[in-house]
Amino acid sequence: MKKLTKNEYSTLADKASPPTKSYRTIPTAFLVGGLICTLGQGLLNLYQYLGLPEKTASAAVSVSLIFLSVLATGLNVYDNLAKYAGAGTLVPITGFANAVASPALEFKSEGLILGIGAKLFTISGPVIVYGIAASCVYGLLYYLFG
């Protein structure tokens, strides 16, 4: 075989690899993500209409969206939607709920402790770790300069 450098091959491989169809994926993500947020706003209005104060109502919206996402994950619907929606289903709170529910389903075969317990946060773990770390930094800055 003639020698091919890694750089030369990388160029060839990039040329042969089809790119993501952004013209389709980005609008779909925008639409589905927007629809989920609109649903959240609708629920917020509904809960307030039913008499909840705004703070409690917004917490109830989060709980409702998380419930719906976990339900859809369990019913084998969420991943099929996410296949088309991409970031549209990943970014809202529903994506986080799916990232916790899906390992719970997947690893239940290894038991409650080493399966579900140990693997529950394999995907969402980094979000929690760096989310908490960032909030600590923010809290410190707020304490010092706020």
Partner: peptide, 17 residues
Amino acid sequence: ERQFRFPLEYGGQRAPT
């Protein structure tokens, strides 16, 4: 999938490649 990638029900997108 469960060994190399993600749980089956995880809502991720696969690359075209």
